[in-house]
């Protein structure tokens, strides 16, 4: 496989202009509920998020990455329905599609590719991400890595603003999660070659509940 490390870093960079910075991945309402309040509870939150939402996103990003070369968008439609079924929270579905749409808008300007039209106008973020990764010539594992990295790096960045934590300690937590993310990326790639029903489906009830609490909160720092 061709080495595309530079493109991978570009897509995984938190400064990639697709609007992700406005989201905390459920951390803000989790802090509001008192469940995360220090580094230890933050690290547990990030671990739980990687193992559920992160693993699901990675599986779908990897599957979508392997789908872009298909003739039409039929498999994207099937992936979209499968991911909908894995997101019981309507607030999370809305956020995911908003982020997916933003990502496609950005990638369409940065690296236009007619195949992106197969993805649909409002894809879930992991599906848009998988397609974007493929457009940049990257593979399924790269898609899974970016999805898993985002699943924890976004909330970790938000944590610095929401808690009295310094950025070194949050990045130390991210560093400790590295081996887990690598392992989950491998599982995601394997699952992406199998049946759609067997794509990762790890649920996180507290994240689902937090997302709905946050959606009706009048005063908030992050959009989700």
């Amino acid at each position: 496989m061709v080495d595309h490390g530079a493109a991978l870093l570009l897509l995984a960079d938190g400064r990639f202009p697709a609007g992700g910075y406005a989201h905390s991945g459920g951390l803000e309402p989790t802090i509001a509920a008192g469940r995360v309040h220090d580094l230890a509870t933050l690290e547990a939150f990030l671990q739980g998020r990687a193992l559920t939402a992160g693993a699901v996103a990675a599986g779908f990003a990897a599957a979508a990455c392997g789908t872009l070369s298909d003739e039409d968008g039929k498999r994207f439609i099937a992936l979209d329905a499968e991911l909908d079924a894995r997101m019981p929270s309507p607030a999370q579905r809305t956020t995911s599609r908003q982020l997916g749409r933003q990502l496609l808008r950005a990638v369409g300007a940065i690296r236009p590719d007619p195949r992106l039209e197969h993805v649909g106008a409002r894809p879930h973020q992991p599906i848009g991400l998988g397609a974007a990764v493929a457009v940049f010539g990257l593979g399924r594992r790269d898609a899974a890595w970016v999805a898993l990295h985002e699943s924890v790096a976004g909330p970790a960045a938000a944590a610095v603003r929401l808690l009295s934590l310094d950025p070194f300690s949050t990045h130390a937590a991210l560093a400790r999660l590295g081996p887990l993310l690598d392992e989950l990326a491998g599982s995601a790639v394997a699952a992406s070659h199998g049946e759609l029903d067997d794509l990762p489906a790890g649920g996180a009830p507290l994240l689902d509940i937090a997302a709905e609490d946050h959606a009706v909160r009048h005063t908030r720092l992050f959009a989700s």
Binding site: G26, T30, R35, V36, T41, A44, F45, L46, Q47, G48, R49, A50, L51, T52, A53, P200, A201, G202, G203, A204, P205, L206, L207
Partner: peptide
């Protein structure tokens, strides 16, 4: 999929 007693289940996200 919901796990109990599995990795990550007892975290504030799950």
């Amino acid at each position: 999929d919901i796990g109990i007693g599995t990795a990550g289940a007892d975290t504030p996200a799950v």
